[in-house]
Amino acid sequence: MKMLGLGDVRLHYRVDGPADGPPVVFANSLGTDMRLWDPILPLLPEGLRIIRFDKRGHGLSSCPPGPYSMGALITETEQLLDHIGVRDCVFVGLSIGGMIAQGLAVKRLDMIRALVLSNTAAKIGTPDMWAERIEAVRQGGIEALADAVMERWFSTEFLATPELELWRNMLTRQEDEGYIGCSAAISGTDFYTTTATLRLPTLGISGSEDGSTPPDLVRETTDLIPGSRCQVIRNAGHLPCVEKPEEYAALLTAFLKEVGHV
């Protein structure tokens, strides 16, 4: 675990695998930290250089006052990857992480050679919807949203398991200000025009029971990029890497081989 100072924010990050391995960068969702990817990492091919980080206001990164902008989140990711020396990576972004992926790919094609846009979209929700969620957190903390978030994140089957508590705890133990700040960043983002300019290998992944970014929304976004394809993981919600890690890892591994990354 390492920390990088970037002006008003300090980013927690971790690099695993050989220094000369093909880099794969993972960016997690709103309300989670880098542990989101733990279920799939042992299932990926050996020899990869795995880069994970907590965006501002999440995990062990610092939490500057909000609101945040998507531009700031993208720039901080860019600065982190420049610091590590990442080029020609496959960037896997889930939810807000997928928005960061889209914005960074437009900005730095030297840094990203292929995209995995998981449970994300060029535009998520509406400003009014996000304003309501932000106000709910201001009034009652993240706990006020937690049960509704779990229903969007997970399938009916997973909601009945003891493991649900792990992810509910992860959500509610995030900083309220970090959740609010990143919610504001999502609210102000519409990448339909810019994402449509991308020309790089892209895999979309969705969950059939995703209540945040349904499969049709993910497919609409990946369809903006010529040559992309989109896969639906059945009986999974917004975090299929948690619910169906074997299937998720298999899709990712196949894509890494397809683009010549392994």
Rank of each mutant, 00 (worst) to 15 (best):
K2C: 13
L6Q: 13
R10Q: 15
D20Q: 13
D20N: 13
P22R: 12
V24K: 00
F26T: 06
A27V: 13
A27N: 09
N28E: 11
T32I: 05
L36S: 01
I40Y: 03
I40F: 06
L43R: 08
E46V: 05
G47P: 00
I50R: 05
D54W: 02
P67M: 06
S69T: 12
M70A: 10
L73V: 06
T75R: 15
Q79D: 10
G85L: 07
D88N: 06
V92W: 04
I96E: 07
A105D: 04
V106A: 14
K107D: 14
K107Q: 14
R108G: 00
R108Q: 01
R108E: 00
L109S: 14
D110E: 10
I112T: 07
R113Q: 12
R113M: 03
L115Q: 01
L115M: 11
T120M: 05
T126N: 09
A131V: 11
E132P: 01
I134L: 09
V137Y: 10
V137E: 08
Q139S: 14
G140S: 09
G141H: 03
A146R: 02
D147P: 01
D147I: 00
M150L: 10
R152M: 07
E157R: 15
F158D: 08
L159T: 11
E163I: 10
L164V: 15
W167N: 06
T172V: 15
R173F: 08
D176S: 13
E177C: 08
G178W: 02
G178R: 12
I180R: 12
G181N: 06
A185T: 11
S187Q: 11
T189K: 10
D190A: 09
F191C: 08
T193N: 10
T194E: 12
T197M: 11
L200V: 13
T202L: 02
L203V: 11
D210H: 05
P214F: 04
P215Q: 01
E220S: 14
D223A: 15
L224I: 02
L224A: 03
R229D: 04
V232G: 02
N235H: 14
N235W: 08
L239K: 01
P240S: 06
C241P: 13
P245I: 02
E247K: 08
A249I: 02
A249L: 03
L251Y: 04
V259D: 03
